[in-house]
Simulated scan of single mutants.
Amino acid sequence: MIAERELRVLSVLDSPKGRQELADELNYREDTVSEALTGLARYDLIHKERVGNRVIAKPSDARCVEVLQSLTKSNPHVDFPDVLTPSMLNILYYLSSGDAWTATELAEQTGHARATIYRGLRTLTNRAMVIKQHSQYRLTEEFNDLHTFAHELQHHIHRVRIKQDIGSGTLVWESHEEFLVRTDTEVEHPDYHRTGLDAFAEYGLQFFTTSEQYYFYSEDRNSLTPGDLFCHLLLIENDSRHRKYALLLAVKADLSPERLKTAADEYGITEIVNPLVEFLKTEGGKVSEATPRWEEFETLADEYGVEL
């Protein structure tokens, strides 16, 4: 995660500057600036080049850099690097002016203790960046770019991680700490878990697949559950074919409606999954545009040796 001193350097790097210039502006030692620049370069947030005996740093064109510098210029009275701690960035990733959250909901979403959430919300409320209505909190319109910065920063970090770990890939879905990536590359990294139709083979479901492969990145998970695979397939492609294959997995892995709904909530696809859950619960009694006819599903299940 980006450290405070790195944020300070980034917030004032609105044009190419040398280490001594940055050290003077921030009242830092030059070696402290050098360490910060190294950290920022590691995340592709700046570019460094040598001009004679000087190292010149230039801001990258990443959207998060632009947003941070805009916030700094528009609110010179706010010490953003002091506010934007790692836990605060996690909170701001979800908290915006458009969506209201309770402290409990934010704790569940971020994984932080409620004491940490309340401390962060108190900081934002005291600075008039957040308003509280009943038990819900939301960012003010004036400071909604805090959410934009947190989101864009993590998106940028995910893209850099993909580049460094596997060379190339396209983000399909992401949260603050995890992401789903499409790639043409075989990935052996322990934090990347194979998903998509290829992973269904573990449950005896073998499908024809293309050269594209899908991996789910997570530092915290040792493996993926059938509920994860069910949701990942719908995130990859929510068409009639993939919905039928997801339904086959749900039956083969004996996924309960509760487990499916919990997984759907986690990935933010509750509206997609609910009709499929009702279809299975009622054995085709409740159909929708998102579901096949039960007879069609019976034929497919028989083809793949799945007992309904």
Rank of each mutant, 00 (worst) to 15 (best):
N144P: 08
N144L: 09
N144K: 15
D145T: 12
D145P: 09
D145I: 11
L146D: 04
L146E: 07
H147M: 00
H147G: 00
T148A: 12
T148N: 09
F149V: 08
F149S: 08
F149A: 11
F149G: 13
F149H: 11
A150S: 06
A150I: 06
A150P: 05
A150Q: 00
A150Y: 03
H151R: 07
H151T: 09
H151F: 07
H151C: 04
H151G: 01
H151S: 05
H151Q: 05
E152D: 04
L153P: 04
L153M: 09
L153T: 07
L153N: 05
L153C: 04
L153V: 09
Q154R: 15
Q154V: 11
Q154F: 05
Q154M: 09
H155M: 13
H155N: 14
H155C: 11
H155Q: 15
H156S: 08
H156K: 10
I157E: 13
I157N: 10
H158C: 07
H158R: 05
H158T: 07
H158S: 06
H158M: 13
R159S: 07
R159M: 07
R159I: 06
R159Q: 10
V160E: 14
R161K: 15
R161T: 14
I162F: 13
I162E: 04
I162G: 08
K163L: 14
K163M: 12
Q164P: 10
Q164A: 14
Q164C: 10
Q164K: 11
Q164M: 12
D165F: 08
D165K: 14
D165E: 14
D165R: 08
D165S: 13
D165A: 14
D165V: 10
I166Q: 00
I166T: 08
I166F: 02
I166V: 11
G167S: 10
G167L: 11
G167A: 12
S168I: 13
S168R: 11
S168H: 13
S168P: 06
S168G: 14
G169W: 02
G169A: 06
G169L: 07
G169T: 05
T170Q: 12
T170D: 15
L171G: 04
L171A: 05
L171M: 15
V172P: 02
V172H: 00
V172I: 09
W173V: 03
W173G: 05
E174W: 03
E174L: 05
S175W: 05
S175A: 01
S175T: 01
H176M: 03
H176T: 03
H176Y: 12
E177C: 09
E177G: 13
E178A: 02
E178S: 00
F179W: 02
L180P: 04
L180W: 02
L180I: 02
L180Q: 00
V181T: 06
V181H: 09
T183P: 03
T183E: 05
D184F: 09
D184Y: 13
D184R: 12
D184I: 10
T185G: 03
T185P: 08
T185K: 10
E186Q: 05
E186Y: 02
V187E: 03
V187A: 02
V187L: 01
E188P: 01
E188L: 05
